[in-house]
Simulated assay, not measured.
Amino acid sequence: MRPEALPVDPRRPDDLDTATLLSLAGAATDTLIRAAIRERGFEVTRAHGYVFQRLLAGEQTIGELAADLGMTQQGASKHVAELERLGFVIRRVSSNDRRARVVALTDAGRAVIDAARVARRDFDDRLRSVLGSDDVAALRRALGGLLDDVGVSARIADRSIPWSE
């Protein structure tokens, strides 16, 4: 005989599984951070953030961006074209290979990154005021351990987390 399933109230976070809580918390955090960036005058998408992170490691060709971010060259080109139109990146001839064109951040692109850093710092401060410094530190350790366990820590370190929709 199978035991009766316990009633789950999806309105109560305590009734949700950890994976769902992490997913919802991540999406909510992403929305808050992007809203804070918008308030600072920059309109960017989640996908743009992946490109920005990769370009912080240095200029890249479209092919390199696509490979590092796990997307097609057409997808990378689309994101770069959007960022170029917004003035956040430029394409120029590579200093290493005159036949190749590389994508690099502009000053405006670096300003977006600075705005995102401020927004994330403000979020951390808000979290500390709600949870307390000890709980935030414990949360950071737990999330770091989770990222190690799922094998993405090295990808984080070299700023090559694959883009996923």
Score class of each variant (00 low, 15 high):
S77H: 11
P7H: 15
L21K: 15
G145V: 08
R121N: 13
A36K: 07
V89S: 01
E4Q: 11
A137Q: 12
M71H: 01
D9S: 08
V103P: 00
G87Y: 02
L139R: 14
L22M: 15
F42L: 09
T106H: 02
R54M: 06
F52W: 04
A104E: 01
F123S: 11
S153K: 13
V118D: 11
R121G: 11
S153G: 13
R54L: 06
A76H: 07
L83W: 02
T31C: 11
R12I: 08
S160W: 03
L22F: 15
A108N: 04
F52Y: 04
A81M: 09
E64F: 01
M1P: 00
L56E: 12
A115M: 04
K78P: 01
D158R: 06
R38A: 15
H79S: 04
V118Q: 14
L24T: 03
I37M: 01
D135A: 15
D148I: 07
T20M: 10
V136E: 05
R141L: 08
P7W: 14
V44G: 00
A76K: 05
A157Q: 11
D114E: 13
L105K: 00
I113E: 01
L32V: 09
D68G: 09
L127D: 06
I161N: 05
V51T: 01
Q73K: 09
G87T: 03
A115W: 02
A27V: 10
I113T: 04
S77P: 07
R99V: 00
R128C: 12
A19D: 13
R11D: 11
M1W: 10
G63R: 12
R155P: 01
W163C: 04
V44E: 02
R11W: 07
D148K: 09
D114T: 09
S129V: 10
E39N: 15
D124L: 15
L69K: 07
E39D: 15
I62A: 04
L6R: 09
A28R: 15
I156V: 15
P162C: 13
T61C: 03
V80T: 02
R121Q: 15
E43T: 14
R91W: 01
S94N: 05
L65V: 08
A19Q: 11
F52L: 05
V152E: 06
R2V: 10
L56Q: 15
G63N: 13
A76N: 08
K78W: 02
S160G: 06
A76I: 06
A119W: 08
G41W: 06
A115R: 00
D114C: 05
L147F: 14
D134S: 13
R128P: 07
L86Y: 04
E43N: 12
G70M: 05
D148F: 07
